[in-house]
Simulated scan of single mutants.
Amino acid sequence: MASSVLPTAPPAVRWRPHAAVLAFGAFAVGTDGFVIAGLLPSVAASLHVSVAAAGQLVTVFSIAYAVFAPVLAVLTASWSRRAVLVAALAVFAVGNAITALAPDYGLVLLSRAIAAAGAALFTATASATAALLAGERERGRAIAIVMFGMTSSLVLGAPLGTVVGDRLDWRATMWLVTALGMLAVPPIALRLPAVAAGATAGLRAFLAPLGDRRVLGVLLTTVVAFTGIYIPYTYISEIFAPATGGGALLAVLLLAFGVAGTAGNLAAGKLADRRGPREVIIAVTLILAVVFVLMPLGRGTIGAAVATTLVAGFLSFSVTTPQQHLLITLARHGAGMVTSLYQSAVYLAVSLSGAVGALGLAGWGAAALPYLAAGLMALTAGLTYLSGRPRTSDGGH
């Protein structure tokens, strides 16, 4: 039946301009998530707390993001996607404005949770909305454009915010992020079609993916995949310490990872449309496993370190879009639900990567961490292969 499938945009809809606006919003949200790490010393000094305590701002943001993503998706299921996106950016802006004005540490912690709620709702809804507007044939490209905003925030937004914080004040960076988020509101409010991806089939259909073992399997695979991907990234300073000396050369590696990741995300979107998301995930994770196995060989020289990081960055971000593509294909009307759960899975993986990596670092040393990541990549490929192809009847039955 037609009502059982994920709605697709009419051919007349020009989805790329809308996806570009959503990507800009994702850029603002991503900048907010990444930039705090570079501001910790000044935040700590301003609030009269230790750097370790200031680091909990990152932890609170991540936990709140993971928790609020699915909860808010359910609460806003009956809203038009346009209303959800505008409301999400409003909450995001309020959270960051409170951060910029907060006089004490406790209020800053609370404000980071508020900003994370808006960020989580926006990112998940933006991906689902772009996929809806583009239709089935170009779904991967649309998701990749939105994710381009997120990956480019790692390359451009976070460094820009750090410079602003260094030259002015960390609170100025918070105002900058607030302004970036609000700039995306007018084009979304005035131009985005009032689609209602979740409400068209009712709340039961929206929540239906939670009872689908295939969807839950992809979410589990997402946690495994991104735990493996983020272990080398989180501990990149330790892995390549012999080549960088922990100095300015480390920034070169981080930049290389971000630039390559941005390119990989866009390439993966096209491949997912042409070859299918499942096939792309299997191929990318298997190749990435090999790259991680070879990574320790490049620890000693900066040239080899940069080359390895470029390849790893390209492949690491090539998993993001196909995973979401596969989830949306399986979910039908529950696209908003699964993209929010996907965001939760990624942030859970980020947290796990720090803990698992710390255990590996203490037990076997930095050189062994890429091998641990390689094992998780191979496991991801195996789980994705065993999950099987989405049934053709998912397109309508």
Rank of each mutant, 00 (worst) to 15 (best):
L249C: 01
L249F: 00
L249V: 00
L254H: 01
L254R: 03
L254A: 01
F257L: 02
F257N: 00
F257P: 00
A260L: 06
T262S: 13
T262Q: 03
A263L: 15
L266N: 08
A272T: 09
P277A: 13
E279W: 04
I281C: 02
A289Y: 01
V291W: 01
F292H: 13
F292E: 14
V293K: 12
L297Y: 01
I302F: 11
G303F: 12
A304F: 08
V306W: 06
V306L: 13
A307C: 08
A307G: 13
T308S: 13
T309G: 03
T309D: 03
V311T: 08
F314V: 11
L315F: 08
L315Q: 10
S316K: 08
F317Y: 15
T320G: 02
T320W: 00
T329W: 09
R332T: 02
G334Y: 09
A335F: 08
A335Q: 07
A335R: 07
G336Q: 05
M337K: 02
S340T: 08
L341H: 12
Q343R: 05
V346L: 15
V346C: 04
Y347D: 06
L348F: 15
S351N: 07
S353N: 14
S353V: 11
S353T: 12
A355Q: 12
A358V: 07
W364K: 15
A367N: 07
A374R: 00
L376N: 10
L379I: 10
L379M: 11
L383S: 02
L386D: 02
S387M: 13
G388Y: 05
P390D: 07
T392R: 13
T392A: 15
G395C: 02
H397D: 13
